[in-house]
Nucleic acid binder design. Structure first.
Lengths: 140, 140
DNA sequence: ATATAAATAGAAATCAGTTCTATTTATAAG
DNA sequence: CTTATAAATAGAACTGATTTCTATTTATAT
């Protein structure tokens, strides 16, 4: 997805296209990795001397609600986000543990595990979260 | 796994079998669901008038290091743990979103997604985290 | 029974994240 | 191009889950 497509989605959802929202999107598109709000603020500091942490937290949360960003789960209590480049598909993400790069994995075999759970546990599956980690092609 | 097997593992790893560690294990085995440290403390209060929150946090973390407990990931910043009843196998967990029950899912098709990632992204996969949610047989 | 290192209680501190209020700004309408 | 409007923001203050610290207690090997 291009930056324009993301901005269009923001407008569609009646949010304003502010310089800071746009800069944050550009940052994610350029870095190709997951970021915490404080990290993102540090990286945007050169362009915006005055950029409050609450603003970064809020923008990331809003963009997550729109499906533009997704949360990355870590063991620490910190929040991490990354941009989702294929928001329409059923897919997952691969994370490089060394450089923090996030890549789309356009593959999902949830059906098999859902069937297993429904047969064995007699339960109804509703959602699943999959995160694969390792070393990307550059770091391995 | 029986309570004795867990206690044996604790001894093996040179930790002491204290009344509070034992009571926490019994609680997880009985409740069959995930718990936060503050919740667990509340449930153990009748038996232990003096039970500090830091103690509960520390015990849960230690037992996680031993592979006896696992962390459950939620969107909130709170920590949740549950007991792992099949620590030796490659498996996952199913969580009931209504009653918080956790059930073992002795099924793993990680190989397929790992192959996809290694072929397409030329990356090396090292670990994966899968959490399936829905309604258990009682709640659905 | 005793010695020892490990475990614990409770107070205090930490720190990521959130709330609040006054001010600024994107945008739709004239 | 103005103006009106609601939305967005900065920065200070706050919150609350988790962690640290220290003195005391306890499990366990001898």
């Amino acid at each position: 997805m291009t930056i324009e497509a993301y901005l269009h989605k923001i407008k569609q959802c009646r949010l304003k296209v502010t310089p800071k929202r746009k800069a944050l999107l550009e940052l994610f598109l350029k870095k190709e990795r997951y970021l915490s709000p404080p990290e993102a603020r540090t990286l945007l500091r050169p362009r915006f001397k005055q950029l409050g942490l609450p603003t970064v937290y809020r923008i990331m949360e809003e963009l997550t609600d729109l499906g533009i960003l997704i949360r990355i789960k870590r063991d620490s209590r910190r929040l991490y986000y990354t941009i989702c480049r294929a928001p329409q598909h059923d897919h997952h993400h691969f994370i490089c543990r060394k450089c923090k790069r996030v890549e789309e994995v356009e593959f999902c075999n949830f059906g098999d595990i859902a069937k297993f759970i429904e047969d064995r546990l007699q339960a109804k599956t509703e959602s699943h979260f999959v995160q694969v980690e390792g070393l990307c092609c550059r770091c391995k």
